[in-house]
Design a protein around this nucleic acid. Structure first.
Length: 866
DNA sequence: GCAAGGTC
C-alpha cells in the first residue's frame, strides 16, 4: 500500500485550494470535523496517498487550572506565578481527535498553516495532536507559501522546510503574558469596584493590553474636547465682481485673534477700495491612485463611508471571501506580487454591468501596475475574484464588494491630473488670493468619484489689472474643539501603534463597546462613558503606562526576541511577568486614586437599588440592584447575592427557604417559552447539597464541578426532601428529551405548564384550571407524581360540573388527553400521541449525591405511553 | 464573569 501523507491547513478553504491544485481537481472529499480531501500523487519521488484537511484557527488556548478559577478564592496577584495549561479552544469541534485519527498510518506530515507567527504556533499544535515526531521514521515538513495560487502552492511543495520553533514559542510567550496580565487586572478591578458601587452598568471591569490602550485613544480625545478653550478670531473678506462672477478673496494672514487689529485692516482695505492682480500662477497637480487594499483600510472605509462597524465589515468580507467573490480579507499588504495576473482579474470582472465598460476601456487603453505599497509577506491585497451583482449578494455585502472592486480598478487606473490656478491680489499692502482647479485627466477618480477633485472655475485675470472691491466683510468666528474620535481614526491609531492585528482590531473595538466603556454615536464617533473615562483617568493618575499603547509594543518587542532566537522563551516570559506583577502590586496599593474618580461618578451599593426581600441572617430587607450584574445587597451584613441574569426578579409570596430563612424570589426569563422559577438567594449562590453537578446559568464550567459565581441552584435543582418548592416536591416525571425532570411551573396559571429543569422541553397542562398542584402520591403504574387539578366551574370537563380531579398526567385518560408537549428545538407542537416517546426511567437526582440527607429515591418517572 | 489570537 502506498505511504500516506497528511497535510493540514489553517482553515477549510485553504485545505480545499491546496488539494485542488495538487490533485489537479481529481480528488475525493469526505466530511469529518473538517473536510478531508484525498487523492494519489507523488511525494519526494514516491507514489503516495495524500490526505488534506485543516484546523479552524488555533486548536488550543491557554487557561488557568481549576483551582485558580474561583474569583473569590484566588488572589489575583497569585495569577502571575500560577501554572497555565492548554485546553482545546473549541471542544465541540473535536479538532484534536480529528487530527489524531487522520494521522493514523501516515508517514509524513506537511504543515500548510498561514505563514505568520500564529501559523507557526498552530503548526506545533497540529504536531502535538497528530503525535508526529514520536517516531523518528515519520517526518514533519512545513510548506511556506505567500498566496493560495497554483504557482505558490507548487513552489512551496517543492521547497518544504522545517517549522520554526522560535516563532511558535514567541506566540506561547504572548499568550501567557496576555492571559496573566489581563485576567489579574480584570478580576481585581471587577471585584473591587463591583463590591463598592451599584450602578457601574458593566458585568466585568476588564483590562487588557490591547483593549485598554484602545479605550485610551477614545478618552484622550474626549479630554482634549472637554479641556478645549474656544478663542474668537476675525478675518477680513473682500469681495470683487469680475466678468459677472462674485469672488471672495482669501487673506494671506488667514485670521487674527485680535478684533481691533482685524478691524483696522478692514478699514484700510475699505479705504483703498481697489485690488491689483499681482500674480497669476498655474501648476499641474497630481492626485495619485490608491495602492492595494488591506484589511485596515477596508475597515476604515467601511466605517467612514459605508457606515459599517468593523465587526460587520469583517463578517461581510469573510462571507464574500468564502463565497469566492473576493480574495482573503485579512491581510496587511498593500502591494501586489510582481506575478499578479491583473489581466485575468479584469477579464473575470469585465462582464459586470456596473463597471464592465470601464474595464473594457482599461483593457483597451492599457491598465497601469499599481503603486508599490508595503508587502507584509502574508496575503495579497483584497481583490475581487469574480463578478457579482447586488441581487446575488444582498445590499450590505454588495456595497462592500462594490468598494473592493472600485478600489481595485482604482489601483490600476491612471492618476488624476488637474491644473491649479492661483491668482494673487494686493490691496493696502495686504495680500489676498483665490484658487481655481480644473481637472485634465480624471483617471482613477472616475471609478472612485468620491475622491474626485472639486473643480472651481475662475474668470480671466491679467497681471497688473485693477479691480474695484464690492464689499469688505469682517468675519467673526471662534475656534472649535476636535470632534469625538471617529472609528476610522481609531483604527488608524491602533494600526500605527501596533494594537491588535488585522483580524483582531474589530474585536477590541467591539470589546470596549460591550463593556460599556464607549458608545458609538451618529457618524460612527466613539464617545467614552463615565466608566471608560474614570478608568483611563485612574490609570493616568496611578501608572499611565497601563493605558498607553507602548504597553503593547513593549510586549511585542520582548517576544520578537524569542521569535528571532535571540532570547530564551522562559526567561523572557519571567522577566515580563515580573515587571507586570510589580505594576499590578503598585496599582492595587494606589487604587484609592482611581476610586476617588469612581466615587464622584457612581453610587455606593448601599444607595443603589430598591428594597426587595428579607435577608435570612439579619431579617432586614435587602436591596435589589438591577444593573448588570444584577444582585441583592444586604446593607446590614454587607453581603452581595447574585441572582439569575437576564430575567425579571420579584418576591415570591413572602415565602421563605426552610434551610436558611431567606425570602424566596421568582425569576421570569424573557419570551413565551421562558422558564419561571423560584429560588432562594442564599442557596442560589451557595448550593447546600453535595452532588449537584448541574448548575443553572453556569457557563461552560464543564465537568469540573467548580461552582461559578453568579450561577447556581434554583429550587428546581434543589433536592431538599421536604421543602414544598424543591424538585422532589414539584417534579412530576422524567423529561422525554433529556435526563432532567419535568417540574411544575409555580406561577404559570392560568396556562399551567411543566418545564424541564435541564433542557428547553415544555409541557402544557389543562388550561384554565384554578389550581394545579403536585401531591405526595405516585402513580402505581408509572411512578409519576400524581397531580391535583382544580378545574374552572364554567369550563370543567368533568361530569356534573365537578371541578376537582386527581390523577397521573401519563396514565389518567382525562388528564393525558388535555396535555400538550412543546419543544423549541425538535418539534414545534406535538400532541400526545400514544407510544411515541422513549421511556427514560430516571429523574434528576436518583442514585447520585444527596449525601446530606436520605438517599433520594429514583421515582422512575417516565413518559411511557405518552 | 477574566486576555488576545486564530477562524466560522
Amino acid at each position: 500500500m502506498a505511504p500516506k501523507v497528511l497535510m493540514v491547513a489553517e482553515k477549510p478553504s485553504i485545505a480545499l485550494s491546496i488539494a485542488s491544485v495538487l490533485s489537479g481537481g481529481r480528488m475525493s472529499t469526505r466530511r469529518g470535523s473538517t473536510e478531508v480531501h484525498e487523492f494519489d500523487g507523488t511525494f519526494q519521488g514516491f507514489h503516495v496517498h495524500y490526505k488534506v484537511t485543516s484546523v479552524i484557527g488555533h486548536v488550543f488556548s491557554v487557561e488557568f487550572p481549576a483551582n485558580f478559577q474561583d474569583w473569590t478564592v484566588t488572589d489575583p496577584l497569585d495569577l502571575f506565578e500560577a501554572p497555565i495549561h492548554k485546553v482545546e479552544s473549541n471542544p465541540k469541534a473535536h479538532i484534536g481527535r480529528h487530527l489524531s485519527q487522520e494521522a493514523q498510518g501516515c508517514s509524513h506530515l506537511v504543515l500548510w498553516l498561514d505563514c505568520d507567527r500564529e501559523g507557526e504556533n498552530i503548526c506545533f499544535e497540529v504536531i502535538e495532536c497528530t503525535g508526529f515526531r514520536v517516531n523518528n521514521s515519520r517526518r514533519v515538513y512545513r510548506a511556506r507559501f505567500s498566496s493560495v495560487t497554483e504557482k505558490d502552492i507548487t513552489k512551496a511543495m517543492s521547497n518544504l522546510v522545517e517549522p520554526n520553533k522560535h516563532e511558535a514559542l514567541a506566540v506561547d510567550a504572548r499568550q501567557e503574558i496576555d492571559l496573566k496580565v489581563g485576567v489579574a487586572f480584570t478580576r481585581f478591578q471587577t471585584n473591587y469596584f463591583q463590591g463598592k458601587y451599584g450602578n457601574l452598568d458593566s458585568r466585568v471591569i476588564s483590562y487588557g493590553p490591547c483593549q485598554t490602550p484602545t479605550l485610551g485613544f477614545c478618552v484622550q480625545r474626549y479630554l482634549q474636547i472637554t479641556t478645549f478653550k474656544p478663542e474668537k478670531f476675525w478675518a477680513v473678506q473682500p469681495y470683487i465682481i469680475q466678468k459677472g462672477y462674485e469672488l471672495k478673496l482669501e487673506w494671506e494672514r488667514n485670521k487674527l485673534f485680535d478684533s481691533d487689529v482685524a478691524g483696522m485692516f478692514q478699514k484700510l482695505i475699505m479705504e483703498d477700495g481697489i485690488v491689483e492682480v499681482t500674480g497669476i500662477s498655474e501648476k499641474q497637480e497630481c492626485k495619485t491612485r490608491p495602492s492595494g487594499l488591506n484589511t485596515v483600510n477596508l475597515l476604515k472605509v467601511a466605517s467612514s463611508a459605508l457606515g459599517f462597524g468593523p465587526q460587520l465589515a469583517m463578517q461581510l468580507a469573510e462571507r464574500l471571501y468564502t463565497q469566492g467573490f473576493i480574495s482573503y480579507p485579512r491581510t496587511e499588504s498593500t502591494s501586489y506580487p510582481s506575478s499578479f495576473d491583473f489581466r485575468g482579474t479584469l477579464e473575470a470582472l469585465v462582464k459586470n454591468p456596473a463597471w464592465g465598460s470601464y474595464i473594457q476601456t482599461l483593457l483597451a487603453d492599457g491598465y497601469l501596475k499599481p503603486r508599490s505599497g508595503t508587502d507584509a509577506g502574508d496575503h495579497p491585497p483584497i481583490t475581487p475574484m469574480c463578478s457579482a451583482t447586488e441581487d446575488m449578494l444582498g445590499t450590505d455585502a454588495w456595497r462592500l464588494y462594490q468598494y473592493v472592486c472600485q478600489h481595485f480598478l482604482g489601483t490600476i487606473s491612471p492618476d488624476c491630473k488637474y491644473l491649479r490656478t492661483k491668482i494673487e491680489f494686493s490691496v493696502a499692502e495686504e495680500i489676498f488670493h483665490c484658487i481655481g482647479q480644473c481637472v485634465t485627466i480624471k483617471g482613477f477618480t472616475s471609478i472612485m468619484p468620491w475622491l474626485g477633485v472639486n473643480e472651481t472655475n475662475l474668470p480671466q485675470f491679467t497681471k497688473g489689472e485693477k479691480i474695484e472691491i464690492s464689499k469688505v466683510d469682517l468675519y467673526e468666528g471662534k475656534t472649535v474643539p476636535p470632534d469625538y474620535l471617529s472609528e476610522s481614526e481609531l483604527i488608524s491609531l491602533m494600526e500605527k501603534h501596533g494594537i491588535g492585528t488585522d483580524a483582531s482590531i474589530s474585536v477590541h473595538i467591539n470589546n470596549i463597546c460591550e463593556r460599556n466603556y464607549v458608545q458609538v454615536q451618529a457618524g460612527r464617533k466613539l464617545v467614552p462613558t463615565p466608566l471608560g473615562i474614570s478608568l483611563i483617568r485612574g490609570y493616568q493618575c496611578i501608572d499611565p503606562d497601563l493605558c498607553l499603547p507602548d504597553i503593547r509594543s513593549f510586549i511585542e518587542q520582548q517576544i520578537t526576541l524569542v521569535a528571532n532566537g535571540q532570547a530564551n522563551h522562559s526567561l523572557v516570559v519571567q522577566h515580563v511577568i515580573q515587571q507586570f506583577k510589580r505594576k499590578f502590586s503598585y496599582f492595587v496599593k494606589q487604587i484609592d486614586e482611581m476610586d476617588a474618580l469612581f466615587e464622584a461618578q457612581f453610587s455606593p451599593l448601599s444607595d443603589s437599588g430598591r428594597l426587595l426581600s428579607k435577608c435570612g441572617k439579619c431579617l432586614r430587607y435587602m436591596k435589589f440592584i438591577s444593573s448588570q450584574p444584577s444582585r441583592l445587597y444586604c446593607g446590614t451584613c454587607e453581603e452581595v447575592y447574585y441572582v439569575p441574569q437576564n430575567g425579571a426578579i420579584k418576591l415570591y409570596k413572602e415565602l421563605a427557604c426552610p434551610l436558611d430563612n431567606f425570602e424566596l424570589l421568582i425569576c421570569s426569563l424573557p419570551g413565551p417559552q421562558g422558564k419561571t422559577f423560584s429560588f432562594c438567594p442564599y442557596c442560589y449562590n451557595s448550593p447546600p447539597f453535595e452532588g449537584i453537578d448541574t448548575l443553572f446559568g453556569a457557563s461552560k464550567a464543564g465537568g469540573s464541578g467548580k461552582l461559578g459565581k453568579g450561577a447556581g441552584m434554583p429550587c428546581f435543582l434543589c433536592p431538599h426532601p421536604t421543602c414544598q418548592h424543591s424538585v422532589i416536591a414539584q417534579g412530576v416525571c422524567g423529561c422525554p428529551e433529556c435526563n432532567g425532570t419535568l417540574v411544575l411551573d409555580p406561577v404559570s396559571a392560568p396556562k399551567w405548564r411543566l418545564y424541564c429543569n435541564t433542557c428547553n422541553c415544555l409541557v402544557f397542562l389543562p388550561e384554565g384550571a384554578h389550581r394545579i398542584s403536585t401531591t405526595k402520591e405516585r402513580c402505581s403504574e408509572c411512578d409519576s407524581i400524581i397531580i391535583e387539578v382544580d378545574f374552572n366551574k364554567k369550563t370543567t370537563p368533568l361530569k356534573d360540573g365537578a371541578t376537582l380531579h386527581i390523577g397521573c398526567i401519563l396514565c389518567d385518560e382525562l388528564l393525558h388527553s388535555l396535555v400538550e408537549m412543546k419543544h423549541g428545538k425538535y418539534f414545534s407542537k406535538r400532541m400526545g400521541g400514544r407510544g411515541r416517546m422513549r421511556g427514560k426511567g430516571r429523574s434528576g437526582y436518583g442514585g447520585r449525591g444527596g449525601r446530606g440527607g436520605r438517599k433520594l429515591e429514583d421515582p422512575k418517572m417516565s413518559f411511557r405511553g405518552f
